[in-house]
Design a binder for these strands. Structure first.
Lengths: 159, 159
DNA sequence: ATCAAATAGGACTAATTTAATACACTTTAA
DNA sequence: TTAAAGTGTATTAAATTAGTCCTATTTGAT
């Protein structure tokens, strides 16, 4: 299954939770852990990662906490996911080690990965954090021309 | 990183290799292992999985082998990938165990996963096996309306 | 009829990756 | 000055994935 790691799921929940509140409001790791039913050490680690990726801003000290670095409409799922899972399509090619993968002089695996990464990244860049905070209102995704692709149609059949 | 398992990469290479040859031609696991520079036991296992998913047809006996069950234009990457990785978005929700994830009475993680799975599946259903056999000719992907989305634009920036 | 080549299915082990935790340090408002 | 809150690093445990092996079945060729 193409699935995100648990930590990435948690990060999306955290980001959604923060995005639901006014932008100026600060959220402590402890509060978010309670609100999202997640263990505090995990939440703390995730917030740090999201901070380092520039998706959150932090304020230290007693009245500190985290808030979004940008508007929820300006943060794509691709950014959040790659903050947690690393850059798209960076699987180490097994042939880097010592082999020679010379199906027509270029590595077929890398070609495939390039194509697939582009497709996936393009799709995830079209969904914004704001689309997650009101799931019922997400009826379609926008392609790169800005055309609206209805959700039912984009989904295809359930597998 | 959102990356496919190694085995899925291998499966894509195998399927591409088969797709490059005439449809009627049979390919043994041994031949494919040599051609694709992959270990035979792994190739054998992958071909079995692809067979069970209905993407390959098999012919037993001395002159046996595998060939595609359908035309390369009629096999999407979504099918090949889900054959290896299982159905999209079927991560077991950690709250299934015993917890109660009652952020507004429905699980936020599941909602997110549903949305993301739909987006990813939609994207991968628009790329066909035939697009992998001639990588240089893939200049765009088709959205579900059939509109062509140019590759450079769909790709966005490299992360 | 027999043999050899090939697929079919399952079980098992090792390696890798991911998840979760713990601890020491820094900052800052009250 | 103190307590609350973020920062950084290291370590351990759990889960998943990758890879291999063995045995049975089918079938074309001799």
């Amino acid at each position: 299954m193409i699935r995100l790691g648990k930590l990435t799921d948690y990060a999306l929940v955290l980001m959604s939770q923060i995005a639901r509140r006014p932008a100026s409001e600060l959220h402590t790791a402890r509060d978010l852990a309670v609100q999202c039913h997640l263990p505090l050490p995990t939440v703390s680690k995730l917030l740090k990662t999201l901070l380092q990726s520039g998706l959150l801003a932090s304020h230290r000290g007693v009245k500190g906490g985290y808030n979004l670095a940008r508007d929820p409409h300006a943060i794509s799922l691709a950014e959040i996911i790659s903050a947690l899972e690393g850059p798209f399509g960076l699987t180490e090619c097994s042939t880097d080690v010592g082999g020679l993968c010379d199906l027509e002089s270029s590595c077929a695996i890398k070609d495939n990965q390039r194509i697939i990464s582009q497709v996936l990244r393009g799709a995830l860049e079209s969904v914004m954090l704001s689309d997650l905070t009101r799931p019922m209102q997400l009826t379609g995704i926008r392609d790169k021309q800005g055309n609206l692709v209805p959700m039912a149609s984009a989904a295809g059949r359930m597998q």
